[in-house]
Design a binder for these strands. Structure first.
Lengths: 190, 190
DNA sequence: ATCTGTATAGTACGAACCGTACTATAGCTG
DNA sequence: CAGCTATAGTACGGTTCGTACTATACAGAT
């Protein structure tokens, strides 16, 4: 009847859990080489954060966590601000590779307040208008990042591809909503 | 130089913060009438959770929070399990209405591990294939919910509209990825 | 009638996360 | 070289999250 040693699976093997955020850090270090948290944060914001959002305080905490798990090693910058510089360990490299080549994916996580308002009975037109503005701005932003990558190292091929996915995604949504708004304008006020 | 009374804006007016999850609960009670947390959770899963994900433990905690803030009132079921039943207060109704008719939207929050893997250099083909399966299943699920709503009360118009948005969204993504996979199949292995 | 399995309806809890606010260093500008 | 702005973080306390566990109802078998 359900009785178990209360400390079954407690200790040794419950290693640091690796989340998407962890792999974001590992990937960026692989691309950039040994990096400070701020280097990583800068790179993150122009790329990964667009499809895997992480608040900066969470992101700054992650390297520490990964050192604890043995996936990163930490050195002190000599001179200047003497900031911490993180590098991949072998464990880090192989965890990254295992994840990258595994077909498993966690389900996409979405929180879209606009659709929530529509659910609640709000007029969809202002909602879509606001979202069009947002996606237009995001599109311009992503196109800027993409342009900045032209002629970059082939190691950045994945980065380019993911930005292209982002561009396609935002363009699709934008155009769909614009079509909807136009059709409403036509029907609504003749 | 930056000196402020340390307890400026501390007390009385920092009322319970209302999040998207709060409005999800308020909206569902408006639609369903007085409800138990489980009623709400059931309804949530067939609708709102598809564009505003909430883990069930967070969702169960929300009504309690909303009672504390004065947005819901709580009664005891008489008989059966004697569960708690929640109803909107006037404060709840007006908070809901204010939110619904305000044009402000928090930015969409997305976490898509597939694109993260592509960023990291993974082969996009298995990623898209996995996602196609996922979106196909989601599409079928949403279409099922929509069908179950045919002929429902006009109060559920927003629910229907939001499900239609969800259907369109998933169909768009699915078709885009299918087109990509077909184009790859054509080029890749001639 | 009662046992027993399954679906329903939650709670407990510690780790992770998050937002706000604050701190600290570097480089630049007059 | 004082002061300003941009850069590069940390502190902290409440909130959220996932895992695991608990508990109640009801249906059918015994």
């Amino acid at each position: 009847m359900n009785v178990k040693p209360p400390d079954a699976n407690t200790a040794s093997d419950d290693a640091t859990r690796l989340t998407g955020t962890s792999f974001a850090v590992l990937t960026l270090i692989e691309l950039l080489g040994p990096s400070t948290p701020y280097d990583l944060k800068q790179a993150l914001e122009r790329s990964i954060a667009n499809f895997w959002m992480v608040p900066h305080t969470t992101f700054y905490a992650e390297p520490t966590r990964l050192v604890k798990g043995g996936f990163l090693s930490e050195q002190q910058e000599s001179g200047g601000r003497r900031r911490k510089v993180y590098s991949l360990t072998d464990a880090g490299r192989s965890a990254l590779e295992a994840w990258r080549s595994s077909p498993e994916l966690t389900p996409p996580q979405l929180r879209e307040e606009g659709v929530l308002k529509i659910f609640a009975g709000a007029d969809p037109i202002p909602v879509f208008r606001a979202r069009c503005d947002w996606h237009r701005a995001k599109l311009a932003e992503l196109e800027g990042y993409l342009e900045a990558l032209t002629g970059a190292d082939p190691a950045w091929e994945g980065a380019r591809a993911s930005l292209q996915v982002g561009v396609a995604y935002n363009r699709m949504l934008l155009e769909a909503m614009e079509r909807f708004l136009e059709s409403q304008a036509a029907t609504g006020s003749p």
